[in-house]
Structure formats: C-alpha cells, structure tokens
Computed example of a mutant assay.
Amino acid sequence: MSTPNESYDLARRRVIAKTIYKGVVGLWLLLAVLQIVIWYFTTPGGYFWPVWPILGTLAAAVIAGIPVYAGRPAVSDRRIEEELARMRRAG
C-alpha cells in the first residue's frame, strides 16, 4: 500500500505526463496542417504526399501515448532505483 506522499507523487507524474503528451499531439496536428498547406500550394491536385509523414508521426504519437494513458508509467520504479544506485556508485 502506498503512502499519501507516494500517491501524490504518482498522481503528479501522471498529470505531467498527460500534459506533455497533449502538447505532443498538438504539435503533431500543427505539423500535419503545415504539411497539407505546403502540399496545397506546391502541388494542388497532385499526389497527396503528406499522408506518409502524417501517418508516420501519428503512429509514433499513438505509441508514445500508450504508457501515458494505460495507467502504467513509461519508466518503472525499478529502473529509477537502478539509476540512483549507479549514480551513488559513480560518486
């Protein structure tokens, strides 16, 4: 069972992760619109090339969002403890 401080820290980390993720999705949308605008003004009616970078970055955004919204942290406490131990050993 976790203490109130641990619960607060976990909730805080989740809120931060979700906020950052929403920014990533917003950036993805902005870049998608920018690519469509570039396509429209350079090759209107031509091959719709923006579909490929848009789909690629969409896949990356979805994959990045899975740990954020799955309720499991992207970085486990075990990995954090291992890194702390390495830092202590290094001096």
Results as ranks from 00 to 15, higher is better:
42 T>L: 08
12 R>Y: 09
45 G>C: 03
55 L>V: 03
39 W>L: 00
36 I>L: 06
70 A>Q: 11
9 D>F: 04
39 W>F: 01
17 A>K: 10
28 W>K: 05
63 I>L: 15
80 I>E: 13
62 V>D: 03
6 E>W: 00
7 S>M: 10
58 L>N: 01
59 A>W: 02
85 A>Y: 04
3 T>H: 00
3 T>L: 01
75 V>I: 15
67 P>A: 12
26 G>V: 05
12 R>P: 03
84 L>D: 13
77 D>P: 11
22 K>H: 13
13 R>G: 07
78 R>M: 12
61 A>I: 04
34 L>Q: 03
21 Y>I: 08
77 D>A: 15
25 V>G: 08
1 M>G: 08
40 Y>D: 06
21 Y>F: 13
86 R>T: 06
89 R>Y: 06
9 D>G: 07
7 S>Q: 11
38 I>G: 02
65 G>C: 07
6 E>T: 01
53 P>I: 01
65 G>K: 05
83 E>R: 14
7 S>C: 05
30 L>R: 05
56 G>Y: 00
51 V>P: 01
15 V>N: 11
85 A>F: 03
41 F>C: 02
37 V>G: 04
89 R>S: 15
91 G>E: 10
76 S>K: 12
63 I>E: 03
2 S>F: 00
90 A>I: 05
90 A>E: 14
21 Y>N: 14
31 L>K: 06
41 F>V: 09
23 G>T: 08
31 L>H: 07
36 I>K: 03
87 M>L: 15
86 R>G: 05
72 R>A: 13
36 I>P: 02
18 K>D: 10
27 L>W: 07
6 E>G: 01
91 G>D: 11
57 T>S: 11
40 Y>H: 07
